[in-house]
């Protein structure tokens, strides 16, 4: 018993997500240039950085999108290397990406999409799949917390959704899937003030000691709502500075130029 506890404790101390010296090329162009980052359970990390610095690329790489394989370096989720895992396996293992540009799926009902997603994850976790009724009940409950109307769940996924609705739907999916690591790529962009608050509340409600969240954003304002433990500045494919929430304020005030020059 003692031994087992000891082992689990090691497991718990190991970072939930660990990126080691990640290098990635797109079209023969270096995009990620040896990026490293460690995210522990219970932590929220914010990543800020100029347009084109590689934030979305980083998120796609983590999620295992085709064409975003690392040239060198490695990524671990709970100590397990992701290099041999396909995108869907990573997702089922608890990696979630809220897309900067959520994708439309014409004709695919939101409810059935969510249900397939949730049941894939449950199956992976060895939990029983939810039957239709149980699922609809759960989905409605979560949706109402996010102020997402039932009607939206009946519509085709993201088709005709406003920018803000799409982002809300992303966070709704996150809430349903209960991931270990969530990467939110500019979830705040396109949200009005009220929606920003609702979405942030939705995210905060899911913060706990077991999971971790990485928020990618351009605006300090989001970080007033979702208060990060760490802020990282990504520039030209590398993290050039890390700090606490105050770093975001500094960016807000002085822009990236000063930071980049200093690095």
């Amino acid at each position: 018993m003692g031994n087992l506890n000891y082992l689990t404790n090691i497991g718990r101390k190991m970072p939930l997500l660990e990126i080691k010296n990640a290098k990635l090329k797109l079209d023969n162009k270096d995009i990620l240039k040896g990026l490293s980052l460690s995210v522990n359970r219970g932590e929220v990390h914010a990543i800020m950085g100029p347009n084109g610095s590689g934030k979305s690329t980083l998120s796609y790489m983590l999620a295992g999108r085709d064409g975003y394989e690392l040239a060198s370096g490695e990524v671990f989720l709970e100590g397990q290397s992701l290099s041999d895992m396909e995108a869907d396996e990573r997702a089922r293992s608890g990696l979630f990406l809220a897309f900067q540009y959520p994708v439309e799926l014409p004709g695919v009902g939101g409810m059935s999409f969510l249900r397939e997603a949730v049941n894939s994850r449950r199956k992976f976790l060895g939990e029983e799949e939810l039957d239709h009724l149980a699922f609809v009940k759960e989905a409605r409950k979560v949706a109402s917390k996010m102020f997402v109307k039932d009607e939206m769940l009946k519509r085709a996924v993201n088709v005709g959704f406003s920018g803000g609705e799409k982002k809300r739907f992303e966070i709704l999916q996150m809430a349903m899937l209960k991931p270990k690591v969530s990467i939110l790529d500019e979830t705040d962009s396109g949200l009005d003030v009220d929606a920003l608050k609702i979405v942030s509340d939705g995210v905060n409600a899911q913060r706990n000691d077991e999971n971790a969240i990485v928020v990618i954003t351009h605006y300090q304002r989001l970080l007033d709502y979702i208060v990060p433990d760490f802020v990282h500045i990504l520039s030209d494919g590398n993290i050039i500075k890390s700090g606490g929430p105050e770093l975001a304020l500094e960016v807000e005030k002085n822009g990236y130029a000063g930071l980049i020059n200093a690095a």
Binding site: A63, G64, R65, D66, E86, A87, D88, A91, R92, F96, L97, F99, P102, V103, L105, F113, E116, A117, S120, R121, F124, Q173, L177
Partner: peptide, 8 residues
């Protein structure tokens, strides 16, 4: 990719 990312 969107679907795969949701575990399908």
């Amino acid at each position: 990719f969107y679907c795969l990312q949701r575990g399908l």
